[in-house]
Design a protein around this nucleic acid. Structure first.
Lengths: 168, 168
DNA sequence: GCCTGTTACATAACAAGTTATGGAAAAACA
DNA sequence: TGTTTTTCCATAACTTGTTATGTAACAGGC
């Protein structure tokens, strides 16, 4: 046991030069962790689409364009997610009465139920887990990112945020 | 002009709950900005694959697995990028002499040339632009992210980091 | 010296984002 | 009112990440 090189994390080492890659990488890890927590909901809806449901819950019925703006992603990205959520019966897509170009998106009963159950449980868990991940961060941004990565490598998101009791 | 709702940024408003989405979103914007700066190189190599070249430049020839570790992405992701870089003539992939399962990846002459040119120019520009984007950040992480997003919305990455002189 | 198990990479299928483009409705204008 | 321009959304093609799985090479036990 001696020829195993141990490999530097180049993205981390390069600092600002690779900050974009690094943000994406952290984002993907967080979403994967979120997915594990959300799995308890036993729904077909993937984690990445909960922000859409949350947006409607928060702002009421939205058009496609408004939703793209609310979530900061491109319009085609929204359109595709909506078609999927529609197929899963979570949202309803109707042509606007005032403007025939716009489609108005709202939650179905099933969608509202899913949001309600999520808010009561897993959303709080996710927020708590991520908050715990980020607690007591200090120093410049790059160091904070390193801390987040180190913590995440040590304890996955799904094992965070319930600091209290072991299962009975 | 009165019926235009102005739409809240829901991902930002939800804070820790959507931190994964938010990291990915910022990462994508940074990479898009980086792409614009790198465009001056006039190469077919996409921005997302420069970290691979940088890794070899930094650490020397690497196996596929080592590279996945160095960049923090999955092995299939590395494999695909390598095939593309190989097709572009930037890297050379050889079967390891000691272990027939491993492939050893190194820079070709063209690859070394590209890295050399990049280091001399655009890499420094990217690092400077991102550093300028992140200068004087303070406060907790979520606030720093908001600041980054606000600044990026105001001035794109490609117009940063060269604070000095207008073109002659 | 095989058989078994493990390791390293490749391939396939999928996910979720992007840009570019097209079609239909609305708005502007003449 | 008819034409042109603009806006909104849908579709297509691509990028780059993922997980799951297959194959070939190495390593160990008998």
């Amino acid at each position: 046991m001696e020829k195993q090189r141990d490999i530097e994390d180049v993205v981390r080492a390069l600092g600002y030069l690779c900050l974009g890659s690094r943000f994406k990488r952290i984002g993907e890890r967080l979403q994967a962790g979120t997915q594990q927590i959300l799995a308890r909901l036993d729904t077909e809806v993937p984690a990445a689409q909960f922000p859409i449901l949350a947006a409607i819950d928060r702002l009421g019925a939205l058009t496609v364009g408004e939703m793209a703006q609310a979530l900061g992603v491109s319009q085609p990205g929204i359109t595709r997610s909506l078609l999927q959520l529609c197929a899963l019966g979570m949202v309803d897509i109707a042509t606007s009465a005032e403007d025939g170009r716009q489609r108005v998106v709202s939650l179905t009963a099933a969608g509202r139920d899913l949001v309600m159950r999520s808010k009561a449980g897993v959303w709080a868990e996710v927020a708590a887990a991520v908050a715990e991940l980020c607690v007591d961060l200090d120093g410049p941004l790059l160091e904070q990112l390193s801390t987040i990565e180190d913590r995440l490598a040590e304890t996955g998101l799904k094992d965070r945020g319930k600091s209290h009791d072991a299962p009975a």
